[in-house]
Nucleic acid binder design. Structure first.
Length: 498
RNA sequence: GCCCCAUUCGUCUAGUGGCCUAGGACGCCGCCCUCUCAAGGCGGAAACAGGAGUUCGAGUCUCCUAUGGGGUACCA
């Protein structure tokens, strides 16, 4: 092992919106680099032209920035090992492949896809494992020259060992080994001149001086291929960590953006990072949540800051087992982070949410409402459902229907009486501070011989038009005397005919 | 089919041979508080996949089976 500075990378493909499971892979790589005082690199692996999706780079960068995973080098920030986009590094891969060819570590394969299909079908018919039959591996130099002279397209395949085992070591999994007779002569350079992932990532990791790789366990089966590529070049291999996968909440299959899944309560599981942002999840809560899957802080501590996580994190402590996505825990965690925010800070986060909902996001009003909603929302967006009425046009407030105003074990006459008495009390009220209001109305309930809940419930509905809302007297205080009375009178109007 | 990885409460996890009568958290249930909904407080149910070994002693080590997951592309 060397004493070179630790360098990790996150190397997504630009195939569309960023996946939440993908973001967690980035968290672990980033955390390890930070823990070691090293560097974190963003590299774009776009060697498959067909899967390229316009705008992907923005999604990737946006997601990383949102979560606070700043990278030291990358396509938009540059760095000493630029470029950081694989399609801009083709020469390097082609030269590397040429070296392997020259040194008998790889060979050109002229087989057509038709022949490949046929070979596979025949193998299957004989109940043999599918795979390339290494037909071109034994071509003589003359034969190769002849085919090239014909202008036949070719791919380059890795010349894998035929016997023995390939042994590897993984930081999380420990020692792993694979029988070589089950390995394939994988394609490393495609006929379009682009390398495959297998070749490109090895070359890049080497030249970018990556010391520790992190990637999902779905890559484990190709680990022996990569080991053989590293060995063929004679390069010192970085340490590898195959991270556990995030499975659907029911544990069936890995979390995928291609097929939807649902949690226990029937809610669709959010997959794209942008969906989490739009739904009003906080980045620090999301970070905490993601870091807690497959890794834990220790000391029975589940709530921690980014700094604390950096301090403690180590790849070797990552749990090797795949994990069902514990979505419901994010709601709890997010609610917790919301509650712990200073009210002003929360209000600041809420202003854009209110505006986004098409409401009047007056910062002063949001500042008043935020504290009374704080313990009642798990995501920023829930603020709208609970307290959105504050930000509607007050002059357009409609009186709720009578049956909504009438509380349990009450009738229209009784409700009317409550409203009338409440208006009288409010008009006479000197203080509009919610504690005073509470005391006043508690007395009124007694006078009227109704339960607190009956009187307060009617007031709540009259004031908010909702049965679930911010607390009644806090609401009254924010609405102010005139508006409160006006709304009660509107409600009273629903009982005009009795 | 073949190869690889994994397996502790419903879920995320602690646990690296005696400290385990298995700890924490979410969720769930109950009680308290209470103007709704929350939050908060208190309490509860709930797990070492199964079988053989190794050992004085196994959740912890080995093997087998089962189950789950991943891979098996000129995709990453």
């Amino acid at each position: 092992m060397s004493d070179k500075p630790v360098r990790t990378r996150f190397a997504p493909s630009p195939t569309g919106p960023m996946h939440i499971g993908n973001l967690r892979q980035a968290v672990f790589g980033w955390l390890y680099a930070k823990h070691c005082g090293g560097q974190f690199i963003l590299r774009i692996e776009d060697t498959d032209q067909k899967r390229f999706v316009e705008g992907s780079l923005d999604y990737i960068i946006g997601a990383l920035r949102w979560l606070g995973l700043e990278y030291d080098e990358g396509p938009d920030v540059g760095g000493p090992y630029a470029p950081y986009i694989q399609s801009e590094r083709l020469k390097l891969y082609q030269d590397s492949v040429q070296w392997l060819l020259d040194n008998d570590k790889a060979y050109k394969c002229f087989c057509t896809s038709e022949r490949l299909d046929r070979v596979n079908k025949e193998k299957q018919a004989r109940k043999e494992p599918p795979g390339y039959d290494r037909h071109c591996r034994t071509l003589t130099a003359d034969e190769v020259a002849a085919k090239e002279a014909e202008g036949l397209p070719y791919v380059v395949r890795m010349k894998m060992p035929l016997e023995g085992t390939t042994k590897g070591h993984d930081i999380i999994l420990g020692d792993v080994e694979f029988p070589n007779n089950t390995l394939q002569d994988a394609v490393i350079l495609k006929s379009d001149g682009f390398p495959t992932y297998h070749l490109a990532h090895v070359v890049d990791d080497h030249y970018m001086e990556i010391t520790h790789t992190t990637r999902g366990q779905e890559w484990l089966p190709s680990f022996p291929l990569h080991i053989n590529i590293w060995n063929a070049f004679g390069w010192e291999m970085p340490q590898h960590a195959h991270l556990p996968l995030i499975l659907n909440p029911n544990g069936q299959g890995k979390l995928s953006k291609r097929k939807e899944s649902f949690d226990q309560s029937g809610q669709r599981v959010l997959i794209k990072v942008s969906e989490y942002i739009e739904a009003g999840y906080l980045s620090d809560a999301t970070f905490n949540f993601l870091a807690n899957i497959g890794w834990n802080f220790g000391d029975d501590k589940e709530i921690f800051t980014v700094e604390e996580a950096i301090e403690r994190f180590d790849l070797k402590d990552v749990n090797p087992a795949n994990a069902a996505f514990p979505v419901e825990k994010l709601d709890w965690l997010n609610g917790l982070y919301i509650r712990e925010k200073a009210p002003e800070a929360l209000a600041e986060l809420l202003v854009p949410v209110v505006a986004e909902a098409g409401l009047n996001a007056d910062p002063e009003l949001v500042g008043k409402v935020a504290p009374v909603a704080q313990t009642r929302i798990k995501t920023l967006n829930e603020f709208i459902g609970l307290a959105g009425f504050f930000f509607e046009d007050w002059s357009k407030f409609q009186a709720p229907p009578a049956d909504m105003l009438i509380q349990k074990k009450m009738d229209a006459a009784g409700t009317k009486r409550c409203l009338e008495a409440s208006i009288t009390v409010l008009e006479a009220s000197e203080s509009f501070e919610h504690n005073d209001l509470y005391a006043t109305f508690k007395d009124l309930a007694q006078e009227l011989d109704v339960k607190n809940g009956q009187l307060f419930g009617t007031l709540r509905v009259a004031l908010t038009g909702q049965t679930i809302s911010t607390p009644t007297f806090e609401t009254m205080e924010i609405l102010g005397k005139d508006e409160s009375i006006r709304r009660l009178e509107l409600a009273l109007g629903q009982f005009a005919d009795i």
